[in-house]
Design a protein around this nucleic acid. Sequence first.
RNA 1: GCGGCGGUGGUGGAACGGUAGACACGGAGGCCUCAAAAGCCUCUGUCCUUCGGGACGUGUGGGUUCGAAUCCCACCCGCCGUACCA
Length: 826
Amino acid sequence: MAERRYTPAEIEPKWQQLWESEHTWEVANDPEHPGGTAYVLEMLPYPSGEPHVGHLKNYALGDAIAHYSRRTGHRVLHPMGYDAFGLPAENNAIKTGVHPRVATDKSIAAYRHWFHRWGISIDWSRELGTHEPSYYRWTQWIFLKLYERGLAYRKEAAVKWCPFDQTVLANEQVIDGRCERCGHEVELRQLEQWFFRITDYADRLLRDLDTIDWPEHVKVMQRNWIGRSEGAEVTFRCDALDTDYTVFTTRPDTLFGATFFVMAPEHPDVFRLADGTGREDAVREYVNRALTESADTRGAADKPKTGVPLGRTVTNPVNGEQLPMFVADYVLMEYGTGAVMGVPAHDQRDYEFATAFHLPIRPVVAPADIDDPDISEQAFTAHTEDERLINSGEFSGMDAVAGRDAIVARLESQGRGHASVNYRLRDWLISRQRYWGCPIPIVYCGECGMVPVPEADLPVRLPEIEDYQPRGKSPLAAAEEWVNTPCPRCGGPARRETDTMDTFVDSSWYYLRYCDARNDTAPWDRAVLASWMPVDRYIGGVEHAILHLLYSRFFVKALADMELVDIQEPFQALFTQGMILGADGNKMSSSKGNVVAPSQIVERFGADAARCYVLFMGPLDQDAPWSDTGVEGVYRFLARLWRVGDELAQAGGPGPAEQPAKPEGAALELVRKANWAIDKVTGDIGGRYSFNTAIAAVMELVNEIYRHTDADVAARRFAVATAASVVFPFAPHLGSEVYGLLTGRRVWEEPWPSADPDMLVKPTFMLVCQVNGKVRDRVEAPTGAPREQLETLAMAARGVQAHLNGHQVVKVIVVPDKLVNIVVRV
RNA sequence: GCGGCGGUGGUGGAACGGUAGACACGGAGGCCUCAAAAGCCUCUGUCCUUCGGGACGUGUGGGUUCGAAUCCCACCCGCCGUACCA
C-alpha cells in the first residue's frame, strides 16, 4: 500500500468550501432567542497589501475563542470588515494616479481570500468596508447626531499640522512632536477645524474603566492620557492692565509661597502685557524663538530654565504681594490656563527658574518636626503624613490638608478662586484636509451660515476627482460641481465642507454596525444591538490602547446619552496580543529583511500548522520571535495526529469513538490521558487564554497514543477522536478531518467534551519523599491514603533512610496525594 | 523622572507556596533504507561520580516558611508607555 501522507493542501480547501457553501458560521439576529450569546471580535484590519503574520495571530486567536464559545453552547457573533479609508491608499494614489478605491478594494480582496484560506469562522453575511457609502452614510448620521447635541463643533484653534501629509492631526496622533504616520515634525497652525467634545466625557471615561475587564496596563495608559488632577483655580489680578489671570494649581496649600508668575509664550496676552514696559523687544524675541523651536528641543527634560520678565506684576490674592510676571517656555499653553504661579520652594521646575533668575524661595509647608525644610539643593516636594503650613499668615500651623481647604474656602468667599479639576485630555480634532475619508455632512450658506445636511440626503458621497495632491486644503475643494450645492435650508447658493473625517471616526462604531449590518433604514435596530452588545471578547494589538479604544468608548457613551444604545461600554473584556518579531528578535520590517509572509507558511505547511504555531509560540500577550523550525515542529505534531487517525479509519471506518466502558492496562492509561487532556485544554482556553499550554497538552496526548500502540482499538479511537475534538479550535480543518474520518460526524456540531471525573484520578500516585525539603526518594502510594500511612511509607523509603541516619526527627509535613517532608535536626 | 511589564537550559517557553525545566526547537546516538527524504525510538540544565548516587542551579543580596522561580524588603539589568501636565 502506498504511504499516505498528511496533505493540508487537499484537506483544508475541502472544509473551507463546505463551510462557505453551507454558511456554517452565519448567525441570525433574533433578540428573542434564549440561551447565551457571545460577541467575539478582533480589531478590524486596515487593508494594505496582504495580511501579515500579526493578522494571522490576531484572527487565529479570536477564532479559537469563537469556536470554543460555540461548542460550549453560545450563539456566537464573529464578523469581519475593513477599515478602508486612510492615508496610505491615498498617498499611493498621489504617486500612481490610480484611485485609492482601486488599491483598497484589491487589498480587501486579498484579505478576504486569506481569511477564507486560513479557515477563520467568519459570518460573511455581515462583512463591511468603512469606505462603502452604505457604511459611511451612518458615520455621517452619527456626526449629525453629535452635532445636534453640541458634541461636534467647529472652532479656530492652534492645531497640530503635518507639513508632509498636509493635514491637521489629533493630539493622540502626535508622538514626541512628530506625525505618527510619516514621522515629520508637526507645526502649529491657527485653523478653523471640527472637534468632538470628548472632554465632556473625561470623568466617565476615567470612572468606567473600573467596570470593564481590561489589562491593567491599558487602563493605566488611558488614565494617564485623561490625566485628571484635583486642585484649584486661583485668580491673580494685574492692576496695570486691569485684567484677571487665572491659574490652575494642584497645590493651593502653597499659595503663600508664590514669588513670581509665569505665562506660556503662546499666551495671547504676552505682547499686550509687555507693551509700554520697555521689554517689548526682549519679549518678542523670546516668544518668536520659543515658537519656532521644535517640540523635541523645547521639551528636553534637562533643558535649563529660560524666560524673560514682562515688566508687570500680579497681586497674590491671599496676601496682596506683588509678584513679578515672566514669559517662559516651560509653561505650556495647552495645559491648564497657560499661566502658572511660581512656588519655587515646592515645585522643582519653579525652583530651577527661581534659582536662574535670583527670585526668592520661601518654604510654606514643612513636616511636623522640622521648622525649616531643606531647600538648599532642590524644592521640597515630598508629602509626609503630618506636614503643616508655615509662613502662611493666619493659616500657619494648620495641617496641610486642612490648610489647603481653608485657603480655597477663603478664595472662594472672595471670588478669587475655587476647587477645580483639570484634565490633560483635549477635544478630539477630527477634520483632515485629505481626500480618502468620510465627507463631513455640513454645508456653508452665505445666508444661513453652517447648515447640517438633512438625514434624507445622506450619504454625502465622496466625489470623483483627478488630482489627489493635498495643497494645504482638502483635494475635495477642487471638485467644484460637488462643492457648490444649494443650501438645504434656503435653497440659495452654498458650499460643502471639504474636509474629511479622521479615519478613527469610522472605526469608532463599526462593531455596532456588525450587529445589524444590512439595515438600510437605520444604523442599527436598538433591540438587535442590545441582544449582542457589548462585545464580550475584543482582541487586538496594544498599539490601539489609547486612540481607538478611547474614541470607541466615547462614542458609546455619547450614543447612550442620546438613547440610541443601551450600554455604557463597548468592549467588556479586552485582550491585547503581543507582537510576532522577526527570527532575529527585531520588529519585522522590510528594511531588516526579517519579514515572514504568512502566505508562504500556509502554502508549505497548511493553515492549521500556521495557526497552531502562532498560538504555540508562547503566552499570547507577549512578544515572541518567529522560528521556521518551530512551525515545522507543529506541522509534525499535526501530521502525527492525522496519520494515526487515518490508520484507525482505514482499519475500522467511521464508527463509534466513545470512551470505552471498562478499559484496562494500556487502554486505561490512554483513556486517562485523553481525559486529562480534555480537562487541561478546557481550563487553558476557558479560564485564561493559555493556548500554548493547551496545544502542548494535545501534543502530550498524541505522544501517548504513539507510546501505547498496544492499547485496544476502542481506546485508541477514543483517544484520537478526543485529540481531534479538542485541537479543533486551533486547527479546525485537521480537527474536522480526523474527527470525521473516525466518527462520520462534524466536530463543530458536537458539544465540547467534558472530562470523566473518574478518569482524572489514578488509584496510585508517586509520593515525593523529602528530608529537610530536599527530594530523597519517590515511592508508589495509594491515592487518598491517610496521612499516617503516607508518613510510614516515606519513613521506610530507601533514599529517606539514607539521609535520616540517626538524626532526630523534629516534625513531619504531609501533603495528601503529593508529598511528605521529614524535618530532622542535624 | 514617573507608571507598567519582565529576567528560568544552547533557544521559545512550563511550573494552585510542594518533584524546577512540561511541550517544542536545536543537538547527540540508534532503527528503517542500496541511498536519501520522510518516519520511528533513546538521550540531552551544569559539575562531580567508585555509575549506587552526590553537589549546584530560576538576575543579585537579604527575609518569611518544614519547603520559595512563586510571597516580602533592598538593589541590578532589559523592554514598553509617558513626560517641563503646574
